[in-house]
Design a protein around this nucleic acid. Structure first.
Length: 203
DNA sequence: CATATGATTCCA
DNA sequence: GGAATCATATGA
């Protein structure tokens, strides 16, 4: 069996884990793919995170122990794969948004995008709560080398307000399998301004 | 019980 | 630009 990331890898803030996961390998059975894009979701105070509604049937896994898969259905038709992190009760998780096929994925099958990658790897809601640390079907193996990592705001969470602009998305700057082209490189200090959000709102 | 909506993708 | 499609959350 391939080496797995240890428990303490996941026992850190989602922001740290999200960055560290870029370049690692996601394994499901004989299918292997390299993670090239992630996003951090940081618990109840993060208005884009499912943890904002507290512990419910759906968020039970999210609020559970680190190192487990949190898989949920989105838009009635796609499964999103996340890794629970930080600590039990924290509600932190990292969404894997894109992978590049390494082995066992049919030619021509796309795996850029959270819905596409679960389909390509055969991951479904049936895997929700699976332990990634033990001998389960899904594993994450350490990366061999450190990719050049770019940063941007998260995708598809505009409803969450100002926190949607936080630079909590990480991706391999050299990968051709990222779910969408590098937005502006906000990693270089040039931050795009959201006109509607600037002067108007205050809470 | 009724209704709104989303960490998306695909098609026109 | 808009539809597809359904579990979850929220309010009556």
């Amino acid at each position: 069996m391939r080496e797995r990331l240890p428990e303490d890898f996941y026992e850190r803030d989602a922001l740290t884990v999200a960055r560290a996961l870029v370049g690692t390998h996601l394994v499901h059975g004989d299918r292997v793919a390299r993670i090239v894009e992630t996003e951090a979701y940081r618990g109840p105070t993060d208005l884009a995170c499912h943890a904002r509604v507290g512990v419910t049937k759906r968020t039970r896994t999210l609020y559970g122990p680190p190192g487990r898969a949190y898989v949920f259905l989105i838009y009635g038709m796609y499964d999103c794969f996340n890794v629970v992190c930080f600590g039990e009760g924290k509600g932190h998780a990292v969404l894997v948004r894109a992978v590049e096929p390494v082995r066992g994925v049919a030619e021509g099958v796309r795996s850029d995008g959270p819905g596409r990658l679960t389909r390509a790897l055969g991951i479904t809601r049936a895997h929700d709560g699976e332990d990634l640390l033990g001998g389960g079907r899904i594993a994450i193996a350490p990366r061999a080398s450190r990719p050049r990592i770019a940063v941007s705001a998260r995708v598809g969470v505009a409803y969450a307000g100002a926190i949607a602009e936080a630079p909590w998305r990480f991706f391999d700057a050299a990968s051709a399998h990222v779910s969408r082209p590098s937005p502006r490189s906000i990693g270089l200090g040039l931050k795009a301004k959201a006109p509607s959000e600037s002067g108007a709102r205050r809470r």
